[in-house]
């Protein structure tokens, strides 16, 4: 695991049968995750997402199959050494209540034997990274923080030793919708900078689309129904199962993933101009508010219903025929 900015994770025919259970919780799971990639495991409750993820840091031991990180079989590594190189964030957060925020963030660096000065600097850096002012929060205790702040600390703690791999099990699942959106946006920004290899478990498809580089849609026993980019899954769901998981409004969800850039056409328009960096869902909103007439784009050109539909691959001229 020398590559600190991300490692390859390979799972090959991994299965897990819990003691006294008739059926495996995970059966023949095979997946390769590229360095720096954020893979979302999404599926209904009980389908085996958590079990699959927790086998990667051996919180759960696989019954069969092999798991490799950067080519090394994790079963041959010392369990605790392995875990110190894998950031771990769980829904219930699990901060240590008797330790200050700074001490919580310092746990893995301390286990790794870093010097006091290096740890202190690192803790401050991590807290800033998750937008908590170190001078305010370092000496507080977890119970003095809101749920959203605690989860930020959870992320900072997982990142503190700069592990190449992160495992995240519904990290934002317990927060209210507004906090969740903020945490997701911050996390997206964070991942853009740190480029870890991340396995992220969620049952929220919207969250999967928003954050994932690739999404694995899972059904019972962690069977992979489709493993592809959010845009491709939305455009071409592989089965009824996947389509039902996407739910209503697939086109709007796809638009949210696309930039205005991809739908600019030449021509003039009147109305409030929209930035090229915005997503097409916002652009469509503007067009609708503009009574369906095209809206100008900052820097030249315009977007219209037709250009947006074309960007989605829909031929508007044939609609209604």
């Amino acid at each position: 695991m020398a590559n600190k900015t991300g490692a390859t994770i390979e799972l090959l025919n991994v299965s897990k049968v819990y003691p006294n259970q008739p059926e495996p919780a995970v059966e023949n799971f095979t997946m390769t995750i590229n360095p720096g990639e954020l893979v979302m495991l999404v599926g209904p409750s009980g389908c085996g997402k958590t079990t699959t993820m927790k086998m990667i840091n051996r919180i759960i031991e696989p019954s069969s199959g092999s798991i490799k990180i950067d080519g090394q079989d994790i079963l041959t590594l010392d369990q605790n050494q392995l875990r110190r190189n894998i950031g771990y964030v769980i829904q219930q957060i699990g901060l240590f209540p008797h330790m200050t925020i700074a001490e919580n963030v310092a746990v893995v660096p301390t286990l790794l034997g870093w010097s006091k000065d290096k740890i202190r600097a690192r803790v401050a850096e991590m807290l800033e990274l998750v937008e908590l002012d170190p001078s305010v929060f370092s000496n507080r205790y977890p119970k003095q923080l809101s749920g959203g702040q605690q989860q930020r600390v959870g992320v900072a703690r997982a990142l503190s030793a700069d592990p190449p791999v992160m495992l995240m099990d519904e990290p934002f699942g317990a927060t209210d919708p507004i906090t969740r959106e903020r945490l997701q946006a911050e996390f997206q920004q964070l991942q853009a900078n740190i480029g870890k290899t991340i396995v992220f478990v969620t049952h929220d498809f919207e969250e999967a689309i928003k954050l994932g580089d690739r999404i694995a849609v899972l059904s019972k026993r962690s069977k992979i129904e489709q493993f592809d980019t959010p845009a491709n899954i939305l455009a071409n769901p592989a089965s009824e199962y996947v389509a039902s998981f996407i739910g209503e409004g697939a086109a709007l969800k796809r638009l949210a993933l696309m930039r205005v850039d991809s739908a600019v056409e030449s021509g003039n328009a009147t109305g409030p101009a929209i930035s090229r960096d915005e997503n097409l869902r916002v652009a469509l909103d503007s067009v609708v508010l503009n009574a369906g007439r095209p809206v100008p784009v900052v820097g030249g050109g315009r977007v219209s219903i037709e250009s947006i539909s074309a960007a989605l691959g829909i031929d508007v001229s044939r609609l209604g025929q």
Binding site: N80, L95, V107
Partner: peptide, 18 residues
């Protein structure tokens, strides 16, 4: 001690004695 605290302790690579 809450299970989440135990699990995150193990997950960070603490030995059982630690």
């Amino acid at each position: 001690v809450p299970e989440a605290v135990m699990e995150s302790a193990r997950g960070m690579g603490m030995s059982p004695l630690r």
